[in-house]
Deep mutational scan, measured.
Amino acid sequence: MEVRTIKVFTTVDNINLHTQVVDMSMTYGQQFGPTYLDGADVTKIKPHNSHEGKTFYVLPNDDTLRVEAFEYYHTTDPSFLGRYMSALNHTKKWKYPQVNGLTSIKWADNNCYLATALLTLQQIELKFNPPALQDAYYRARAGEAANFCALILAYCNKTVGELGDVRETMSYLFQHANLDSCKRVLNVVCKTCGQQQTTLKGVEAVMYMGTLSYEQFKKGVQIPCTCGKQATKYLVQQESPFVMMSAPPAQYELKHGTFTCASEYTGNYQCGHYKHITSKETLYCIDGALLTKSSEYKGPITDVFYKENSYTTTIK
């Protein structure tokens, strides 16, 4: 009895394709271990004539594949690729409408935090270190965002349907971005203890939790000093293409032309909904596939993004 075979390709990165001759009487799992086709788990399936010449994702289970996976995804987590594939199996079914010149995501599976993050990423200057993220990001900007969303979920250790947080998501993504040249110098002034300067680099240099107003941050924000008295913390120097200011959701007025974009969060910790506000020729609110415009805006804002380049204080 002759062994019926077909020729397929296996890959971990969709760049390096490895030619395989597979036995049609055995499952993919018996031949390769966990195997995925377009995100779908085909591990328990036997090869079919229609699979001839198709590319299958496999887990990096030998040295060659491990090197290829690390170079593309910059992670050695053995569960990463499987999590990416199972997320992709959902995100490829989502709709990605162009809204006001940006790629958004039609609401499904509690994905409003991903839509808000995706919209924000198209408006701030950011370059990702893992080629996987950078490639998928370019495709997302062009309207094909399924891979990018699935990668975000995998890097953030999230599953489809789980509630997510924009600030946490951005923080994970910033860790995989090139923020080497970003720098922030802060000064804390206390009447009792004097003053202390701190220099922050990388992710810490672009994120701040405690106030939404970048102007206020430049002037000074009140913080408790270690001595128990009130101290003032203010920005001395900022070198970065953008800054992200966050605070627990509270009524906040966004003035046209003073910011790049913002995240609105309605609801409580267990259950809520994100919308995205962007400042173009007027203010726009993007909620999944829905767009509304207004000249002014007041609502429960939790993150505001500002364009920056270089700032030095005039406070002496």
Rank of each mutant, 00 (worst) to 15 (best):
L114T: 04
Q30F: 08
G82Q: 15
L114G: 02
F259T: 01
V236G: 01
K316P: 15
R141P: 03
M245V: 00
Y208R: 01
D303N: 05
G194I: 04
D62G: 09
C225W: 01
M245W: 00
T314L: 15
D62P: 06
Q270R: 09
V166A: 09
E71I: 07
A177P: 02
Y269T: 15
L65C: 08
I105L: 06
T211I: 08
K95R: 10
V22M: 11
Q175K: 09
Q30D: 12
G39E: 11
Y57H: 12
K46Y: 12
F56K: 04
P60K: 00
K46N: 14
V304A: 01
Y36A: 03
S246R: 05
L153G: 02
V58Q: 09
K255L: 12
M209R: 15
L291E: 15
L81M: 11
F80C: 04
S294M: 15
T64Q: 14
Y73C: 03
Q20M: 12
A177D: 00
Q123C: 09
L88W: 11
H90V: 12
C182R: 03
Q98W: 09
K275Y: 00
I286P: 00
G143C: 03
Y269S: 15
Q251K: 09
L163S: 11
A250P: 01
K183Q: 15
C112W: 02
G143D: 03
Q20V: 14
H276C: 11
E215R: 06
S104H: 05
H90R: 11
P248A: 09
Y172T: 12
D13I: 07
L126V: 14
A262D: 04
L17N: 09
A154G: 03
L59P: 05
L133N: 02
T312C: 11
M209H: 15
Q216R: 09
A40C: 13
I223F: 13
E144A: 12
H256S: 10
Y214L: 13
D38N: 11
W107D: 04
T198D: 07
I277M: 02
Y84D: 05
F56H: 04
Q270C: 11
A87H: 05
V99R: 10
N268M: 14
I223A: 13
F32Y: 08
L200F: 12
N61W: 14
T211L: 08
T226L: 10
Q134I: 09
K307N: 12
E239M: 10
S310D: 14
Y306M: 00
C271W: 12
K127D: 11
T5H: 11
K54W: 12
D303V: 04
N14G: 15
Y137L: 12
N49I: 13
T232L: 13
A117H: 03
E296D: 15
A142W: 10
L235P: 02
K183M: 10
K54E: 13
A40L: 14
N89I: 14
V8G: 05
C261E: 03
K7W: 09
N309S: 13
T55W: 07
C227W: 02
E215L: 03
E308M: 12
V236P: 03
D62F: 07
L133W: 02
Y214A: 01
K158V: 02
S86Q: 15
H48F: 12
K255Y: 07
N100L: 08
I6L: 14
Q175E: 08
L88G: 05
Q230V: 13
K7F: 11
P249A: 02
A250N: 11
L290R: 13
Q197K: 11
T35S: 12
P130F: 03
K127M: 10
N61R: 13
D23Y: 09
L126C: 10
G194C: 06
P249Q: 00
E71C: 07
C182V: 05
H90Y: 12
K275I: 08
T103I: 10
L212T: 06
A117S: 09
G161M: 03
S104W: 01
K229Q: 14
K54R: 13
L291D: 06
R141A: 09
M245D: 03
H51T: 05
D135H: 11
T266E: 10
L283K: 00
A146P: 05
V67T: 13
P47G: 08
D287Q: 00
T91K: 05
L65H: 08
Y28M: 06
S50G: 13
Q216P: 00
C285T: 11
V3W: 13
Y36S: 05
T43A: 13
L81S: 02
T199S: 08
V304H: 00
D135G: 07
G161S: 05
K95P: 06
H273T: 02
L59A: 14
A150P: 03
L37E: 13
G39S: 14
P130G: 02
L254W: 06
K46A: 14
Q98P: 06
A108G: 04
Y113T: 05
S213E: 07
T91R: 05
Y172R: 12
G288A: 04
N100V: 05
Y252C: 11
I223C: 14
N129V: 08
T169H: 04
V22F: 06
Q237S: 14
T313M: 15
D77S: 10
V221S: 03
Q197S: 12
L179Y: 01
P131E: 02
P60W: 09
T43R: 11
K298I: 14
A205F: 00
P47Q: 06
S86N: 13
V166Q: 05
Q216C: 09
H74E: 07
C156H: 00
Y234W: 09
T260Q: 08
K233C: 14
T192R: 11
D135C: 06
I286S: 04
T226R: 14
G272C: 00
S246H: 01
V185S: 05
Y73V: 04
K92Q: 10
H48Y: 14
Y252G: 01
T116L: 06
A146G: 06
A231Y: 01
G299M: 04
C227R: 01
Y214P: 04
I105A: 06
P60Q: 04
Y73M: 05
C285L: 11
R141M: 13
S263Q: 03
M209S: 15
I45L: 13
I301G: 01
I223G: 14
K183V: 10
D63V: 08
S171I: 11
Q20S: 13
F32E: 05
T302M: 00
Y57A: 07
L200P: 01
R141E: 08
A142G: 10
D38K: 08
T260I: 15
R4G: 13
D63M: 09
I223Y: 10
N111Q: 02
Q30S: 13
Q195L: 12
T312M: 14
Y269G: 15
A146V: 04
T266F: 08
T266P: 00
S104K: 04
L200E: 08
L81V: 14
K280L: 13
V189T: 11
A205K: 03
E168R: 12
K95G: 08
G39Y: 10
F242P: 03
K183R: 13
S279E: 02
Y274I: 05
E264S: 11
A132R: 06
R184I: 05
G29K: 07
M24L: 14
K93G: 11
M26T: 06
V304R: 02
C225T: 01
T211A: 05
K95S: 14
Y208A: 11
D165K: 00
Q196Y: 14
K106S: 13
Y28V: 04
S213M: 00
I315F: 15
G267T: 11
D77Y: 05
R139T: 11
K183N: 07
T266A: 09
K233V: 13
V58N: 06
Y311E: 11
T120G: 05
V221A: 04
V203L: 09
K275F: 00
D77H: 06
G272Y: 00
T258V: 06
K158Y: 01
G267Y: 09
E68L: 06
T27Y: 09
R4H: 10
A136P: 02
T76H: 10
L290M: 12
H51R: 04
Q197D: 07
L153W: 06
P248R: 13
Y311I: 11
K158H: 01
A117Q: 00
K201Y: 15
E296M: 12
K307G: 07
A150K: 02
N49Y: 14
K54A: 14
G101V: 04
F128V: 02
G101N: 08
F70A: 10
C149K: 01
V166K: 04
Y72Q: 09
I315Y: 15
K280Q: 14
E2M: 11
A115Y: 05
A205I: 00
H90P: 04
Y137I: 08
T232F: 08
H273R: 03
E52H: 14
